[in-house]
Computed example of a mutant assay.
Amino acid sequence: MTSDARNPRACLLGTGRALPAAQENAAPSDAPPADGAPSEASAGRGRRRAAAGETTSDLAARAARAALDAAGLGPRDLGMIILATSSGDAPMPATAVYVQQKLGAELIPSFDLSASLTGFLYGLSVANQFVTAGTLRHVLVIGADLLSRRVDPRDRAAAALFGDGAGAVVVGPAAGDGRGILSVSLRADGKKADVLQVPGGGSAEPLTQERLADRRHALRVNHAELRRAVEERLGVQALAAIEAAGLTPADLDWVIPHHADAHLAGLLAERLGCPTQRVFGALDAAGASAGSVAMALDEGLRDGRIQPGHRVLLCALGGGLTWGGAVVRV
């Protein structure tokens, strides 16, 4: 939360997004069905997949350039780059340094942040603190994932849920007109770490031929537990973020969750007591993990549905488990 939600000191100066050029089916047609698969209406048919040779840093850099252009700034105006991702270009170094290189930014701090689908909100919170404190003037926050390369193709439900994409914002000083980051409220529950995870490839399970054969390097999802967590946690945290901003649900113009799912939209609308029409569903952004919320925000701003001065709730839940909400006046 900012020190004074009614007088924010950091705001979103520009937004951007990037999608792969290719568009493919959510799962191979010959893959076996999986328990807990989402309905066809909400599974994200036509989810975009990165082309061969396309990397997370490629999409992140494209989204970043769009956000910088919207802010009227250049890479050399940045004081920091924060990249939220669970599918970086490599285990080491941080993918953010590749983004820094591709943008041609100065020798500024550039690092990755891992909080699954909630990563963008975690990054937004970090940027907000730096700008609000006056330590930095402009911070680039990117959420980007290529989870199509983490998914086990035998898990049709996961393949349907997760795709590729990147969204970015430039955070800078607020103008004193009431627009800005009004609150950020975050949570995590490590006791639920196995609900959404990639178990192999780290220090606990270095990859071996046996673990590769068992696909321990692929994304594993407990779909029933993940759905239950979303239903139990997301609305509660959304209300916490709204209260921290000094607002009520009636004050919101839009609600942007991490997935364009009709069931999730209905649950959030019911919990917040708002019309489902105010729950923003951007199908291209759905399933892009850390990129989803930022991509949907950019889409709404660029197509005119989200207008300057609108109050927007951003909310997400992902592996960790992590979840959170943020209220911004754009």
Rank of each mutant, 00 (worst) to 15 (best):
S114N: 11
A193M: 15
C11G: 06
D58E: 02
L13V: 06
A290R: 01
G88R: 00
A34D: 15
L124T: 06
G202R: 07
I306Q: 07
E205P: 13
V171W: 01
M92N: 14
R47I: 06
R278D: 11
L219C: 10
D30C: 14
P32H: 06
F111Q: 11
E231S: 15
R179D: 05
L234M: 12
P8W: 02
D214E: 12
R228Y: 07
C315V: 02
R149H: 13
S57W: 00
L121M: 13
T56K: 00
G300Q: 02
A240S: 08
H138S: 13
A290W: 01
G273I: 07
V195F: 06
F162L: 04
A18P: 03
N7G: 12
T55G: 14
L219V: 07
A133C: 15
L78M: 10
A26H: 10
I81V: 05
P153M: 03
L78C: 14
S289M: 15
L147Q: 02
A61T: 05
V279S: 03
S292T: 04
N128V: 13
V198D: 05
P308D: 05
A105S: 08
A269V: 05
G246F: 00
L314Y: 05
L182I: 07
R305P: 03
R215I: 09
G287W: 05
R156H: 09
L147P: 00
A27P: 10
V236M: 15
S183C: 07
R211W: 13
G167M: 06
G309T: 06
M1S: 15
P75Y: 06
H223M: 09
A157M: 01
M295R: 05
Q209V: 15
V169W: 03
A21M: 13
H223K: 13
L268E: 01
I81D: 00
V236L: 08
A158E: 08
A10G: 09
R6S: 14
R45C: 14
E299N: 07
A5I: 11
V139D: 00
A174Q: 04
A18C: 11
K192A: 10
P275N: 11
G319A: 14
E106L: 13
P206V: 12
T208E: 05
S39V: 09
A224N: 12
E270D: 12
